[in-house]
Design a binder for these strands. Structure first.
Lengths: 225, 225
DNA sequence: CGATAGCATATTGGATACAATCTACAATAT
DNA sequence: ATATTGTAGATTGTATCCAATATGCTATCG
């Protein structure tokens, strides 16, 4: 006999530190916490109604991911990236995502294509700019997920975490949204045709194009202030 | 006037947690700590004569890097990778390192080439197998370092951390060392000739070849026990 | 008036103490 | 004998407390 219960591995369940890590990560990625913002352990601890110990653990992990920078006895600040660093991250993404989508499209399922199409449509019709980042990510991620390369996907996800607060600016402030919609349609089309080479090349171009547009915007923005 | 002292940013100096993180990381990478080894917080704390707090911080960071796995209330174990995971990591390295060496060779200095040559020679003559891993890494890293892509280098370094305890087996147990020496000579030669395309292709082949040999070895090894 | 030293406060880093949970073994029942 | 339950010890997770360091204000000196 067996107890046919749907069980979860409680040992793998979230510790307080995990919860705080996820919350801070999301806040940074979504832009709620901005570049250079100071993160006070005590303040965060109070917000979550816990001691500073799990907060410190979360901050240590965020630093390991590059999302915050720690200065001993001073505190943690949300990392600011230079234009060179942003540019490098986009090149990195272009390399990895171009490769991963090639592998994914070669074995993509109809079901996955359907999901991607749905996300592309949502992205195309969404008017609330605060949702663009998430929808954009979901669209791309769906097209990658059949590649059977979890490590690649994890590294891509982390790289995206590190730039998405800047990407938002590109979409919102440079009318990148219209272009993104068109390029998404092109990538989706290539995937539907199982043309992995085209999907790869279009994805590379999509990422590098966004990079260029973002860098140009930031150059002006950072000059003026 | 200015005090012309060589100063260091003491705020960035190592905390206890940093020291422990580095020590554990090195032990895992060098193979002193093996696959599946259990890491007891208390034991580590006693070894370093500190409390468990900085140990926990170090373990949290190691988990973020993929070097250990944490199970709540059970403890941390050195991560074990499946053959598929190892294989994926080598493909990842081939992609990144192939790209990075191309960029690096295009702007490599004579000084750097000299350093790489020295490491290649040391690697070729070293008889102590416990030093092969480090020398191998130094050789490759030297050839990459002029690429001006710190993020890429950091990710490569982390990926290497995750496989080097397996790579050791490949070098020592499959006579991979002789082949590695020849391939290093080829890569170095391409770099000296500023042939970035050849350096890239040889590096890819070098990594994928080592991967194949390692996987074959591990398949037999894991069948028998 | 400006600059520097000294002190008070705020904040982080780490140690100790306690609570939650796991593990292993003994006791009991079938 | 085997399986199940209960309990003690071990181990991790978190709170509280103390030490080390930074920051900002004030007083003092030139």
């Amino acid at each position: 006999m067996s107890l046919n219960l749907k069980t979860v591995d409680l040992g793998a369940a979230s510790s307080t530190a995990d919860v705080i890590f996820d919350a801070l990560r999301e806040a940074i990625v979504e832009g709620t916490l901005k570049d250079g913002d100071l993160l006070r352990q005590d303040q965060i601890a109070t917000m979550f109604n816990v001691s500073r110990i799990p907060v410190r653990e979360a901050l240590a992990r965020l630093e390991e991911q590059g999302l915050v920078t720690n200065q001993r006895y001073k505190g943690a600040v949300v990392s600011s990236l230079s234009l060179d660093e942003i540019s490098e991250l986009f090149e990195f993404r272009a390399l990895l995502e171009g490769e991963v989508i090639r592998q994914a499209v070669d074995q993509i399922t109809d079901r996955t294509l359907g999901e991607a199409k749905t996300f592309a449509q949502e992205f195309a019709h969404e008017t609330d700019s605060s949702r663009w980042g998430t929808l954009n990510r979901q669209f791309h991620y769906t097209l990658y997920k059949d590649c059977k390369r979890p490590y690649h996907l994890q590294i891509i996800s982390n790289a995206l975490d590190n730039v998405s607060r800047y990407l938002r600016a590109q979409l919102v402030l440079t009318s990148g949204i219209e272009r993104a919609r068109k390029e998404h349609a092109g990538i989706l089309n290539a995937a539907i045709n199982r043309d992995s080479e085209a999907a790869s090349e279009l994805t590379r171009a999509h990422i590098l194009g966004a990079s260029q547009s973002l860098i140009e915007f930031l150059e002006k923005d950072r000059q003026n202030g």
